Each structure stands twice: as structure tokens, then as C-alpha cells.
Amino acid sequence: MTEIGTPMANVTVRGPEAPRNLEALDPVFTVSDLSVFYGDYEAVREVDMLIGNREITAMIGPSGCGKSTVLRCFNRMNDLIPGARPAGKILYHGEDLYGDHVDPIEVRRRIGMVFQKPNPFPKSIYDNIAYGPRVNGMKGKMDDLVEQALTQAALWDEVKDKLKQNALSLSGGQQQRLCIARAIAVKPEVILMDEPCSALDPIATTKIEDLMQQLARDYTIVIVTHNMQQAARVSHRTAFFTAEVDDKGVRHGRLVEYDETSRIFTNPTDKRTEDYITGRFG
């Protein structure tokens, strides 16, 4: 096992300091014995974890380990996939996220999603941001809402003079920040990000990472990333998932280890985590 304080695989851990241990965590999500099925196939099994308020939690692991599947459970995006169903519990501030009384549309308003590929609407920059507040009947001066969202997404200064311009004319990095601003505009509490930088160049990636750290002052952020360096740079806590093969030869995603990011990358408790981080597999 690697000694404490010795980053593995040349990963520099310089992210925000985790403010609390798990025992003292103020959880936004409490995940208990979560399994996710697609039809009869159990894609992910028996996940237990807590997601802390106003923290950045990173999910890492090889392809096919179920991390994106788990992420989509947090705002019920898997409901849109025929045959997908969760088992176990996900509590959101103590309320069952999948309870019969819960409106999934309201869930997605409170828990926003930013996808791997920027997906601005084929509308003006202004209308991209204003769309959500209008649909949700939010009150207030729309110009102020748009400016606030774009400012929080570190994009206002770059687009304030071209708000009527089609959003598709922006660069890839600007489009992704626009999508973050669009998510912020409806005043969520949580922002989910599924590999938000995988299609971006290093400069745009740095801007998104800096933005995530700023947003964590006001929002809870959960990010799926294949980039271990990114997880080490930006997150408070990291969850490592892997895919296990059962005695029938079927792969299932499993959560192996979840801890403060500094510990995951310098002194993991499970050898599978160390093997992944040091590049021995994955």
C-alpha cells in the first residue's frame, strides 16, 4: 500500500479540502443498498454512500462500472429508459426520491444535469437561459435572472454584448458553460455532471474545473469523470466503482471505496482502488 502523502500514478491532489468526515456529513443524498436493473440485468448492485451538502463528489472507475447509471438515479433520468428500475433507497434530505408522491419533473428542477456533450438549444443565448425559468413560472425580472445565471457560470463578460446570437455559434467550452448556466437558472440545489469536460480542450477544461469549485460554495455537485487528475483536482470526496464478473460470467457495477479524495489517491484501503489509480488495470 502506498504511504500516506505519496500521490500515486503522478496524480497531484490539490483539490478543496474535505470539510467533514463521513460520520459528521450533512447529507443531501443518502444511498442505501442501491441496485439498478435494466430489465432482468442488474447493472449496478448494492451501493451505499452519502453525498455531502455543498461538496464536490467525484465518481471514477473503468467503463461499464455503473457510475453514470448511479448518477442518473439522483435526478431520476433513468426513468426515461424503458425497463430501467432502481432497488434500494435514495433519500433526498430524508425523503424517498422514488416515493409515490414524488414528482420526477420537480426532482429534475431541484437536481440539474449537465451532460457529456454540450447541448444548447438552437435558440439565442438569452433564450437558452430564460427557457427554464419561463417554463417553471419563475417570477422576477428575466433580464436579471439571465445575467445572474451567466455570471455564476463565468460566461457573462464573454456574451453580454451578443445575447441575441445563436448559442450554437459559441465555442465548445462556452457552450458547456452555457449549459451550466441554463441548469443554474432554475435555482437547483444539486448539479450533476456526466463527464462535462471529455469533449473539451485543456483550456476549456480548466475553466470548467475552476467554475465547479466556485459553484460548490452554493451548490452540491456530483461529477462522473474518467480523468483521475480531474477528480483529484476538484473534488472533496471520490467514489471508486469497478465492474465485477459473477459466477455466471455477468458483469455488475460495484462501489469499491468511497472516501475523502486525498485518501483515495494517497492511501486507499482497497487494493482494487490502488490498482486502478496506479494504472494496473482499467
Score class of each variant (00 low, 15 high):
10 N>D: 15
54 R>E: 07
27 P>C: 11
195 E>Q: 08
273 T>H: 07
238 T>M: 14
275 D>Q: 10
273 T>V: 13
191 I>M: 05
282 G>E: 02
208 I>C: 03
193 M>C: 14
17 E>F: 07
7 P>K: 10
174 Q>M: 14
180 I>A: 01
132 G>I: 00
106 E>R: 11
92 Y>C: 08
70 V>N: 00
225 T>Q: 03
184 I>V: 12
209 E>T: 09
80 L>V: 11
150 L>Y: 01
7 P>E: 13
12 T>L: 14
228 M>K: 04
181 A>E: 07
101 H>I: 05
122 P>M: 12
259 D>R: 10
5 G>P: 10
271 K>H: 09
87 A>Y: 08
57 T>W: 09
276 Y>A: 02
20 R>T: 11
118 P>S: 05
88 G>M: 05
48 D>P: 08
210 D>G: 03
68 S>A: 05
194 D>T: 08
9 A>V: 04
165 Q>W: 14
154 A>F: 07
252 H>L: 07
78 N>I: 05
219 Y>W: 11
30 T>E: 15
167 A>V: 03
66 G>W: 10
53 N>D: 14
38 Y>V: 05
45 R>L: 04
189 E>S: 11
44 V>F: 08
186 V>W: 00
77 M>E: 01
181 A>Q: 11
120 P>H: 06
66 G>M: 07
60 I>E: 09
46 E>G: 12
140 G>L: 02
155 L>S: 03
236 H>F: 14
262 S>N: 15
199 A>G: 04
69 T>N: 03
72 R>T: 03
143 D>E: 14
3 E>W: 06
179 C>R: 04
127 D>A: 07
258 Y>M: 15
124 S>D: 11
62 P>D: 06
154 A>S: 12
215 L>C: 10
191 I>D: 00
10 N>I: 12
38 Y>N: 06
158 E>I: 11
170 L>I: 00
74 F>A: 06
75 N>K: 06
2 T>M: 07
185 A>C: 00
70 V>C: 01
192 L>K: 03
62 P>R: 07
83 G>D: 03
236 H>V: 13
173 G>E: 12
276 Y>L: 15
62 P>L: 08
216 A>R: 14
141 K>Q: 14
38 Y>Q: 04
16 P>R: 12
64 G>R: 03
84 A>C: 13
195 E>H: 09
235 S>Y: 11
123 K>M: 15
115 F>C: 09
136 N>T: 00
172 G>K: 08
99 G>P: 01
143 D>I: 05
199 A>V: 06
110 R>P: 00
116 Q>A: 10
210 D>K: 10
32 S>R: 15
105 I>F: 12
228 M>R: 06
158 E>L: 13
3 E>K: 13
214 Q>F: 06
221 I>N: 00
31 V>W: 01
278 T>V: 14
46 E>H: 15
176 Q>F: 08
137 G>Q: 01
20 R>C: 09
113 M>D: 04
62 P>Q: 05
270 D>Q: 12
42 E>G: 04
52 G>C: 08
73 C>Y: 05
199 A>Y: 07
223 I>E: 02
202 P>R: 03
234 V>M: 05
109 R>M: 04
49 M>A: 15
147 E>N: 02
279 G>D: 09
9 A>M: 07
266 T>G: 10
93 H>C: 02
280 R>G: 06
16 P>D: 14
198 S>M: 07
89 K>L: 07
86 P>L: 08
254 R>E: 09
229 Q>F: 12
184 I>K: 00
